[in-house]
Write a protein that binds this DNA or RNA. Structure first.
Length: 284
RNA sequence: GAUCCCCUCAGAUGC
């Protein structure tokens, strides 16, 4: 504001900085105003900066606005790329508009933007989150037909989707198949399965997988630890959970708010209020 | 100085 009062017209870099700022601070109203402002001044970002904007708006839930912005820029001669569409498809999935997501997925290829593995991953995840695992599996088959190789993200997404509909055995089958193919499971794959096993009162199997990670030299991260800690707490194994809580720091990891919340909740449910408070005070 | 990161995809707690 001070800039414009002094007659200095902000350029696209200024707008992008502000836009990133308001978006990461979750200020959708400000983002909207900035966007209108920018368009009114006829300032055009390049494609990559444009994609950053599209993504930032989507993450705020302003998906329709983001899509309108795309249409507006296309009218002015801008050519979006596959990333642009992938980002918007993800946005529609986030606001639970799978119909729109699918439509855009079909539309992009008519505009010269070929689907890539991310396009499929995003859409597959949309269906998985919506517990439409059959459609997700159909897309997995389709992508292979299109000669787009699924990657570890694809498989992990499918595994998570199967877990969400409690098809844990099917998920484990895919997990074991992955080992056979070149795509080795990574920390996210393991954490997904560990978390689901814990939630299905199969903590011992979760711990087996945790050990397997070590054997395979896949380093657990804060997510892995939080799932294990939460699982052990809910199984009433507070001491074991606390052991993992301490081990996490030994491995050079920082507990997150989720980790603390899981552990503190465990202490509380087991009437160990002193320990809960002590940990709470350590959070700062 | 180089590499990595630097536009898009997967996992954890509670509400």
């Amino acid at each position: 504001q001070e800039m414009t009062e002094k007659g200095i017209i902000p350029n696209v870099v200024i707008y992008l900085c502000l836009m990133q700022g308001v978006c990461s601070s979750e200020l959708p109203q400000h983002a909207k105003r900035l966007l209108d402002d920018m368009l009114a001044r006829n300032i055009s970002p390049n494609l990559q900066a444009f994609n950053v904007l599209i993504n930032a708006l989507c993450k705020l839930g302003l998906v329709t606005e983001s899509h309108n912005f795309l249409a507006f820029m296309v009218e002015r001669g801008m050519l979006p790329n596959t990333t642009t569409y992938n980002t918007l498809i993800k946005g529609y999935c986030l606001i639970q508009r799978l119909d729109k997501a699918k439509h855009l997925f079909n539309y992009m290829s008519t505009q010269g933007c070929d689907h890539d593995v991310v396009s499929y991953n995003v859409l597959i995840n949309g269906y998985c989150k919506n517990q439409e695992i059959d459609e997700a599996l159909r897309l997995l088959k389709e992508m292979s037909k299109q000669k787009i190789d699924p990657n570890v993200v694809t498989y992990t997404t499918i595994i998570h989707g199967l877990c969400l509909v409690s098809k844990l055995e099917d998920a484990l089958v895919i997990f074991h198949k992955m080992q056979d193919c070149g795509d080795t499971a990574n920390v996210v794959t393991y954490s997904t399965l560990i978390d689901t096993l814990c939630k299905h009162e199969r903590v011992n199997e979760a711990l087996d997988l945790f050990k397997l990670m070590d054997d395979r030299h896949v380093a657990p991260d804060v997510f892995t630890f939080t799932s294990i800690i939460d699982g052990l707490c809910k199984a009433g194994e507070i001491d074991a959970a606390n052991g993992f809580f301490l081990e996490l720091s030994c491995r050079g990891l920082q507990p997150s708010v989720c980790t603390y919340t899981a552990m503190i909740g465990g202490f509380c449910r087991n009437k160990k209020l002193d320990e809960a408070e002590e940990l709470f005070l350590k959070m700062e």
